[in-house]
């Protein structure tokens, strides 16, 4: 565990908590893509099956349990409890265009052709693109609430911080995982346009609004 990895995890944790607070306090999931949230739930379920087979640390287990619970809880809040506030007319990204290619890619490019390893690989590939329905929704409506922007910023920063962690681990531990690194870079690049808008608009107190 190094400082970049810890900062990345905390950023990821913060993103999830910000989203849950937004939904809970406003009793609304307006502006949030249910499709992205379903993809994140699939990502965690397929990645953390090793909870049953491999113990790493209490920290690792606690975080995995929280990510699993919170992502399934978010899907529950969006599709059941606060269903009436879910903005499904604007949430139209076709997730099969993400699920099928990442599933195929995980069958071809993996560390080992085993069920657990392929599911892990699939979760890594899927996570890298899972935010696309949310970004598509923001671009479709042309704006995002500040709290949604903070959520996206924390969520995007997390993988960026992991890249620093991977650089650190490569130099100081001789460890690298090429699948995680390439997917993590793709994931971070997808946020670049949003990061630019966040820094130039939201941090200056303006609402995130896309140019018409």
């Amino acid at each position: 565990m190094n400082i970049f990895r810890l900062a990345g995890d905390l950023s990821h944790l913060a993103a999830i908590i910000i989203l849950l607070i937004k939904i809970w306090k406003t009793r609304s999931c307006a502006g949030i893509s249910g499709r992205s949230q379903v993809l994140f739930a699939i990502v965690f379920i397929t990645r953390y099956l090793d909870l049953f087979t491999n113990f790493i640390s209490a920290y690792n287990t606690a975080m995995k349990v929280f990510f699993l619970g919170s992502s399934i809880g978010t899907v529950y809040l969006m599709y059941l409890k606060f269903k009436a506030t879910y903005d499904h007319n604007h949430d139209t990204f076709r997730i099969e265009f993400l699920l099928l290619p990442t599933a195929l890619l995980s069958l071809v490019l993996n560390h080992e052709f085993s069920v657990m390893e392929i599911l892990w690989t699939f979760s890594i590939y899927l996570e890298s693109v899972a935010i696309l329905p949310q970004l598509f929704m923001v671009s479709k409506t042309g704006e995002a609430e500040s709290i949604t922007s903070h959520y996206l910023f924390a969520l995007g920063s997390y993988r960026g911080l992991y890249i620093l962690n991977w650089i650190y681990r490569y130099y100081f531990e001789g460890f690298y995982d090429i699948i995680a690194i390439v997917a993590g870079c793709v994931q971070t690049i997808l946020y670049c346009d949003f990061f630019y808008l966040y820094i130039t608009k939201v941090l200056k107190g303006k609402k995130l609004q896309l140019p018409a």
Partner: peptide
């Protein structure tokens, strides 16, 4: 070494 690394990250 092993083909698949231990996935110790989240």
């Amino acid at each position: 070494g092993k083909a698949a690394p231990d996935h110790d990250e989240l």
